[in-house]
Design a protein around this nucleic acid. Structure first.
Length: 585
RNA sequence: GCUGGGAUAGCUCAGUGGUAGAGCACUUCCAUGGUAAGGAAGGGGUCGUGAGUUCAAUCCUCACUCCCAGCUCCA
């Protein structure tokens, strides 16, 4: 059932929602005492939430599917009928479906619609297939917990997820896609390619960057630092622990406490591990009397922060407890706010595009005027800040979704989200407007008229965090990093042991010319060496045999299979540059 | 944090109330091979941690830690 959908759902959504009804029927038949709640169509499928004395396991799914197939083959029509709310309440109360009774409370209008097929009826706004025979190609996927009405204060229901399609081909394609997504899971690839690890002995959500992952990170950071300097930022470094009272001034102990590690006490003074970089940059701003001529002052830091995340939410590189933000704080005059916000968005586009991302979703997160106590600052400041961000987005012609109540405690923000290989959306870029911290810290600059003024602040991170962005990159490229980003760009493989010294010499000379080259001169056969290097997704394989040695060359093969034949060592960089184009650097 | 499922060699996993096994990886030896796994031998595990039941626990019970799926929350 779904009472919150718009009037006419898409045909595929109708099919999926109908499939959810059929599943609910099967579940209620097979597991007595099961109460139904809601079961909408979702992207790629559907779910239904049940309250049941039975604990559903993956093994139950096959049983439920079998019964569903029988129901579907019964060629039952989906029939709509209406009851007044009062009639409906009686109906559901008699059937002992308390969740349906509760849903009714929230519905408007004198009558509510119901849908029936075979023996099953649901309170439902509708949008259904005509007949159960339309539902042929479905599969139940998983069982999980879900809070009633999505509120963690409510009881936990059991949710069964499934997928349904018009044709078998579409269903199979979707299931194959799920398999493919699993293969490019960054946690799996991170281990297989020896990029990073998370160690039980060290703690959850804390990342160890291995040599190869560290090298990719170094390349990412080099690109970013160069771009920061080119765009008028200053690079700074600030301490990881600072006195707790600084965080009281900033408001973090009040508004952000539940996300912070506990303070550390030393010599009777409390220190706080930093959850954000802003106060550090503010102290640098305050270290001198600033002139309006210095603004905008853009302070950037690859700043490592630590945040307490609930144990159930840490996830590979994508949700961690210690991470490095590509952070910056821009101190500016009120008349500069829109141009600075626009420059941030331009920078963000460049930073994502460089890594192969073209598509993303933009959200404008605003405060919720109904709960002002969750935010710092006055209503008119929030309105003004929001107006500035809306103007910027409109002027750039960027479509966005407004997210009420999603703002940071100190100001509204523009967020950019990317969708990963498995369809999850992850927040990366954030551009946040802040009129609050400048006030709390008493920031000033001397205006053209010699009067002290208060600057405004823009917080921004482009990749969000290097860990998260790296995780998404691994999945995006399925571990096959483009040549310029690959930790090992070329692997030289010897045919027999007599070629080891020539291979080392060739590697040395290519390294001198800036290529990241490794040699495999071990005892494996050539076939095994090729297989290993291929599994490591090395972009260029270079085979050395007697012929190549005599011609001072290497026989190159690109990832993907393109055979370049033997090329003289001295000509290799130029040849690769020519072939690889934008992947070269 | 919540619901459910897990934790056995570096990795992927099998297995049993009488203290363990495979494949890959690793080491050594043989082989010197031309584009996705050459052959042989060997080393390696307090079976996540701590209690309990038992003559005996990797296996059964409980607690904890961590991991996985989802929910809630977030960069």
């Amino acid at each position: 059932m779904s009472q919150i959908q718009s009037s006419e759902p898409a045909p595929l959504d109708k099919l999926r929602h109908s499939c959810a009804h059929v599943m609910a029927q099967a579940v209620q038949e097979l597991f007595s005492g099961t109460k139904i709640t809601i079961g909408p169509a979702i992207e790629n499928g559907f779910y239904y939430d049940f309250d049941s004395p039975h604990r559903f396991s993956v093994d139950d799914l096959a049983k439920i599917e079998k019964r569903m197939l029988e129901i579907v083959k019964g060629n039952h029509e989906f029939k709509r009928f209406e009851l007044t709310k009062e009639e409906s309440r009686t109906y559901w109360a008699q059937r002992q479906e308390p969740y349906k009774v509760e849903i009714l409370e929230g519905l408007e209008g004198p009558v509510v619609s119901h849908y029936t097929h075979d023996t099953f009826t649901d309170l439902c706004r509708g949008g259904h297939s005509e007949n159960t025979r339309d539902i042929r190609h479905f599969k139940l996927l998983s069982v999980a917990g879900a809070y009633w009405r999505g509120d963690e204060k409510n009881s936990m229901l059991q949710r069964i997820y499934g997928t349904a399609w018009f044709s078998k081909a579409e269903l199979d394609a979707y299931l194959t896609q799920l398999e493919e997504a699993k293969k490019r899971d960054h946690r799996k690839l991170g281990q297989e390619l020896d990029l990073f690890s998370i160690q039980d002995e060290a703690g959850p959500g804390l990342i160890f960057w291995h040599p190869k992952g560290g090298l990719v990170r170094k390349i990412m950071e080099d690109w970013l630092r160069a771009e920061l300097l080119r765009r008028g930022y200053h690079l700074v470094f600030t301490p990881h622990v600072m006195q707790l009272k600084l965080w009281e001034t900033s408001g973090h102990t009040g508004f952000y406490a539940e996300n912070m590690f506990s303070p550390i006490e030393i010599e009777k003074t409390k220190y706080q591990l930093k959850p954000m970089n802003c106060p550090g940059h503010i102290l640098i701003y305050k270290s001198a009397l600033r002139s309006y001529r210095e603004l905008p002052l853009r302070l950037a830091e690859l700043g490592t922060v630590y945040r307490y995340e609930k144990s159930g939410v840490v996830h590979g590189l994508l949700r961690v407890r210690g991470f490095t933000q590509d952070d910056a704080h821009i101190f500016c005059r009120p008349d500069q706010i829109e141009s600075e916000a626009a420059a941030c968005i331009d920078f963000a586009k460049a930073a994502l595009k460089k890594f192969g991302f073209e598509k993303f979703k933009v959200e404008l997160s605003t405060w919720d005027p109904l709960t002002p106590k969750n935010y710092a600052g006055a209503a008119q400041d929030w309105a003004r800040a929001e107006g500035a961000l809306v103007n910027t987005l409109n002027r750039l012609g960027i479509p966005f979704v407004r997210m009420v109540g999603e703002a940071a405690f100190y100001g509204p923000k523009i967020d950019v989200k990317l969708v990963d290989a498995i369809g999850r959306a992850w927040q990366l870029t954030t551009v946040q407007f802040d009129f609050n911290l400048p006030q709390r810290f008493g920031l000033e600059y001397v205006g053209a008229d010699g009067q002290r003024q208060q600057p405004l602040m823009v917080h921004r991170a482009l990749w969000g965090s290097i860990e998260r962005f790296f995780g998404i990159l691994i999945e995006h490229y399925a571990g096959a990093f483009p040549f310029w980003l690959a930790p090992v760009q070329m692997k030289i493989l010897t045919i027999n042991s007599e070629l080891a010294s020539y291979a080392q010499e060739a590697a040395h000379s290519l390294k001198e010319r800036g290529l990241r080259v490794e040699v495999n001169d071990g005892a494996d056969t050539l076939g095994a060496k090729i297989r290993n290097a291929t599994l490591q997704k090395v972009p260029v394989l270079a085979v050395v045999g007697k012929r190549e040695k005599e011609a001072l060359s290497l026989a190159l093969r690109l990832r993907g299979g393109q055979d370049l034949g033997a090329i003289k060592n001295s000509e290799i960089p130029a040849k690769l540059q020519e072939l690889l184009g934008s992947d070269w650097n």
